[in-house]
């Protein structure tokens, strides 16, 4: 679609549209990546991996537009905050895309496995939470809804708690039967990626807060990820 840039306003709204489009691509990538892992579908996994390119390109476009706006328009106050926020959000979305792509790569790696589906239920639950956070925070960004953004920010503790539980569960499976180790390691990294996606969603929530309120969030986010200090006793 050809765009004749008419005004500053039009450029600002174009930035928003690009973020929204990029967000849509990332949401789709995350959905497809997990679906390919769950269904052991190498074709869908390859599709998901390939779609990350469009996200990277979109990030570049957003960066170029934002930087050229700063250079040409020399924005102040609210406008400057908006443009800088766009840059940050695009960065987080790009990272989410990479993490989701990594989940799809693991789907390729475990595609030949025929181990029980029940192992993946925890990851499915995590993906549901991460998908909801991503959608809600993008909605919050689009509508400049600080309250909604803060809800996402607070809800990340749920995803962390779930990750702790999945982490323990997968370790238990590995101890039960060493033949599970290969599969479970991939699932463990997959779970970690999804947990990180939640963290990036909270970053975006913080950016939305900054954009709307004009000052950064001061509290520390309640951290729930305890896996870095978790040990499971060997029997």
């Amino acid at each position: 679609m050809e765009h004749t840039v008419k005004s500053y306003e039009a450029e600002l709204s174009q930035l928003d549209q690009k973020i929204s489009h990029m967000g849509g691509l990332v949401e789709q990538l995350l959905g497809n990546a997990f679906a390919s892992l769950e269904r052991r579908d190498p074709r869908l996994a390859s599709e998901a991996i390939a779609s990350d390119r469009a996200i990277d390109l979109m990030q570049k476009e957003i960066e170029e537009l934002a930087i050229s706006m700063i250079a040409r328009r020399q924005p102040m106050a609210q406008d400057l905050r908006t443009i800088v926020s766009t840059l940050k959000v695009a960065g987080d979305l790009e990272r989410i895309g990479d993490l989701a792509k990594n989940v799809a790569k693991r789907a390729l790696a475990i595609a030949p496995e025929t181990r029980p589906q029940s192992l993946i239920l925890g990851l499915r639950h995590m993906t549901e939470l991460a998908t909801a956070s991503l959608k809600n925070v993008l909605d919050a960004y689009m509508t400049r809804d600080d309250v909604k953004a803060m809800k996402v920010w607070n809800s990340d503790a749920d995803l962390d708690a779930l990750y702790n539980s999945v982490f323990r569960e997968l370790l238990t499976y590995m101890m039960e039967d060493p033949r599970n180790i290969g599969l479970c390691t991939h699932l463990l990294f997959g779970a970690k990626n999804i947990e990180r996606i939640g963290d990036h969603a909270t970053n975006i929530a913080e950016t939305v807060h900054y954009m709307v309120r004009g000052k950064p969030l001061e509290d520390d986010r309640p951290k729930g990820d305890k896996t870095s200090v978790t040990m499971i006793d060997t029997p």
Binding site: S20, H21, G23, G24, E27, Q28, A54
Partner: peptide, 20 residues
């Protein structure tokens, strides 16, 4: 407001652009 508030589906965005 933009339709992206309802659906950010890339297919929909691209299809609208195509039809425009």
């Amino acid at each position: 407001a933009v339709i992206a508030l309802a659906s950010r589906s890339p297919e929909l965005t691209e299809t609208i652009d195509h039809v425009v």
